[in-house]
């Protein structure tokens, strides 16, 4: 089988990806509350949230993070990732039911620590809504296989 994954050497700093849009639904939020066990009223009490500054329920911040993680897989060919090792993340604004989010990502840095089989790739990621407002942004680090050993 042909390996279509991309290796450390093939990924260039400055590469940019844009994902398709994804509309965040009430179902997403309910399923995420069930999966995570996070039933904070922010995400689950429609009546109370009418009186809040948001005016309605909002998606869990980590639901937005999880969704963008999936959107990356639909924005570009998969990396030959060995491990996802960390992230630095900011929640800039609410994601509301019916909002459509998309991911813009850019290869920010590559770091070769001299390991024969892997190198570190840092992506800058921006999650925007249908009005092009940034709702989340951050940087993610992953270790990617080198071609030499493939």
């Amino acid at each position: 089988m042909t390996d279509v994954r991309r290796y450390y050497e093939e990924i260039e700093v400055g590469e940019q990806y844009e994902s398709p849009g994804r509309t965040v639904t009430e179902t997403d939020i309910v399923l995420f509350a069930g999966l995570s066990g996070d039933y904070n009223v922010l995400h689950t009490d429609a009546e109370l949230m009418k009186t809040s500054i948001f005016g309605e329920r909002i998606a869990h911040g980590l639901l937005g993070l999880a969704i963008q993680s999936g959107l990356l897989t639909r924005a570009t060919k998969a990396y030959a990732t060995v491990a996802f090792v960390g992230l630095r993340w900011k929640f800039k604004g609410p994601i509301k039911i019916g909002d459509t989010v998309r991911l813009r990502a850019r290869v920010l840095a590559k770091r070769d620590d001299g390991k024969p089989d892997r190198g570190l790739i840092t992506l800058q990621r921006t999650v925007v809504n249908q009005r092009d407002e940034v709702v989340q942004e951050g940087e993610t680090d992953e270790l990617v296989e080198k071609r030499a050993l493939a």
């Binding site: 039933y39 922010l42 999880a66 630095r88």
Partner: peptide, 28 residues
């Protein structure tokens, strides 16, 4: 991490009144 946020609600301390989750850093 997602599961941890739910587990954090199940401690003896009453729920924290979070207005907003602002940011986080995470290492795997």
């Amino acid at each position: 991490l997602v599961l941890a946020t739910g587990l954090a609600w199940r401690t003896p301390r009453p729920p924290l009144v979070v207005l907003a989750f602002m940011s986080f850093d995470w290492t795997i």
